[in-house]
């Protein structure tokens, strides 16, 4: 756990998850719950990164396939994806990730802005709220990518959601 001595108000709690071997995090306040794999019903003509909907206790909730969104390819056969249910701009949405690991308290001062990334990176800088380095168990530092959920979704599919009344 990082900087437990800092006052709790200034700490930001994040949910960490893994995607293609990298560690990502979301602000915990946006996360409603975590679901084990559910059957996804495909929506005709939906983009591959938003393939369908699931039944979340009676509500029909769309799923965002983060691997596709970031062009990370299909998950290996042995992964058992989990769905993180988040609330963004009044809508409920499930985000499919490889696995969920931890809830961390981050000191905002430890969050660094993302450096300019090359064009070869599918994960554009605009989706990244910042990077945080975590002291690993062996002393080596590992990096955590903090996602900006609002921008991630407003940039892509949510825009389509808003305007789609054709």
């Amino acid at each position: 756990m990082a900087s437990t001595e800092a006052s709790s108000q200034s700490l930001q709690q994040v949910l960490c998850f893994a995607l293609a071997g990298e560690a990502y995090a979301l602000p915990i306040l946006k996360v409603r719950e975590i679901q084990a794999q559910a059957t996804i019903t495909r929506i005709p003509k939906a983009p591959p990164y938003m393939p369908g909907v699931i039944n979340l206790r009676g509500a029909i909730v769309p799923i965002l396939e983060l691997r596709h969104r970031f062009s990370l390819g299909d998950a290996p056969e042995d992964t058992r994806p989990v769905i993180v249910i988040v609330e963004v701009q009044g809508r409920t949405l499930g985000i499919r990730v490889d696995s969920v690991s931890d809830v961390l308290d981050l000191d905002p001062s430890a969050i660094r802005p993302a450096p300019e990334l090359g064009t070869q990176s599918a994960l554009g800088r605009e989706f990244i709220a910042g990077l945080a380095s975590l002291p690993g168990a062996t002393g080596a530092e590992s990096m955590l990518i903090l996602l900006d959920l609002d921008r991630l979704l407003s940039d892509g599919e949510l825009m389509a959601l808003e305007s789609a009344t054709v």
Binding site: T41, I43, N55, I60
Partner: peptide, 25 residues
């Protein structure tokens, strides 16, 4: 059930329902 609450209108689809086994149709 409405698809539009959290998703959007889909041409050709008027809504969704939940089947006995919990799947969405």
């Amino acid at each position: 059930k409405s698809l539009e609450t959290h998703y959007r209108r889909v041409e050709g689809i008027s809504g969704a329902t939940i089947l006995g086994d919990g799947r969405v149709a």
